[in-house]
Write a protein that binds this DNA or RNA. Sequence first.
DNA 1: TATATTACTGACTCAGGAGTCAGTAATATA
DNA 2: TATATTACTGACTCCTGAGTCAGTAATATA
Lengths: 236, 236
Amino acid sequence: MNHPPAPGASNAAVSNTVADKPTARRRRKEARPSELTAAALALFGEKGFAATRLDDVAARAGVSKGTLYLYFDSKEALFRAVVEEGMVAALAAAEQRLSGFQGSASELLHQLLFGWWEQIGRTPMAGVTKLIACESRNFPEVAQYYHERVIKRGRALLRTTLERGVASGEFDAVDIETAIDVIMAPLLMLAISRFSLSFCCQETTPDAYLRTHFELLVHGLRGAGRAPASPAGAAA
Amino acid sequence: MNHPPAPGASNAAVSNTVADKPTARRRRKEARPSELTAAALALFGEKGFAATRLDDVAARAGVSKGTLYLYFDSKEALFRAVVEEGMVAALAAAEQRLSGFQGSASELLHQLLFGWWEQIGRTPMAGVTKLIACESRNFPEVAQYYHERVIKRGRALLRTTLERGVASGEFDAVDIETAIDVIMAPLLMLAISRFSLSFCCQETTPDAYLRTHFELLVHGLRGAGRAPASPAGAAA
DNA sequence: TATATTACTGACTCAGGAGTCAGTAATATA
DNA sequence: TATATTACTGACTCCTGAGTCAGTAATATA
């Protein structure tokens, strides 16, 4: 897949004002935290949680590791800050944006899928999605935190959409929770593939991928349960 | 999701013959490699590639780390052996089994999805799928090897199926490569979720998940391109 | 039983990364 | 300019885990 911004290409020390000698030591208490979370976001996505070295995060933000520890107690605290700043903020914005949505369930679903792509999937935040999907087993507290703050709320958005579609007759009565899983899976894979080079999804653009997913979905949701889909004598 | 065999519950030192004192040191040149790859498979799935310690692999196989290095040159060599023994073998069997398949494209697709689940997804081999999806970026040689030996051949199986369906008019003319991505994504997610506890897919059984996926697919493939699926004024 | 062979062991080295802290230098204040 | 404050540094400790190897003991052979 021709991934757009090339994760990892983000810039290092963020903003040196014009007169700054870039090598000089500067005191910039206010700017440090966001510069550090930005650097961490990029590297977490690129390498994963475990493989990201805090020396590298600090260097990318233009400070030393000691400085990092002035602002964040631990690697995990740094990760939480990244999630709060990016994921939680984006989710809140999406809830806001969609709360008053008036269109059909299909349109709402379309908004969710492509909105996710715009706000999360194509941004460096997708790296966090991948990180959680891949490493949660090794970092249970991180996973628990993420589940509470992000996953629950994300699923709720999809659930509302599907329930609305089923209630209006626009979608057939599929099992909602399972459908949420199936709908989310390609999004997660898209995030994962962006940061785990050349696995699946390398053949097409994210946009084509999402459009195909969406088309399969609306037709599937409209038709599911209508006909006996399981072929007659099929058994593995 | 109520995952069936509980990965990581696999047993330690595989087969002690009846008379063996389990603590005694034994010389069993022939049995070691497969015992080691079995132990490695379990731990690679559980922890991932980087986080798996070879001390643990050896202990699980009932030997010391030194012994492991008698049979495998490095961690990567051990991984390759795991893939050859499990994934490549399973793929070859699937190609064999499906080469003479006579039914419809839907039935073939059904065979592929549920056959994957039986032979890979529900077995410890799914851990390798997850490992690759998650860590390929950090281990390029491992990824390259896996791509050649597994991914290419897996995609080919799906491609044949879709092309057959399109040729016979059973499926509408979707973009094949993109469709392969979309079809594979939930399988990969299923594998990932089995080894990355409680992320997505925790609400349903793998079987319900796969059935939903399949139903959405056949209906989607039959209907895709038929109607203007994109809702009128929808733009992210 | 004595000797040779070799599968196996576990303590070792070495590298890399999280977290610490005494010291340094950039700024604020007198 | 002198002094106080504090943002920042980088060399340090401590730990973990991959890979090594001299030694040990289980088997084969005499």
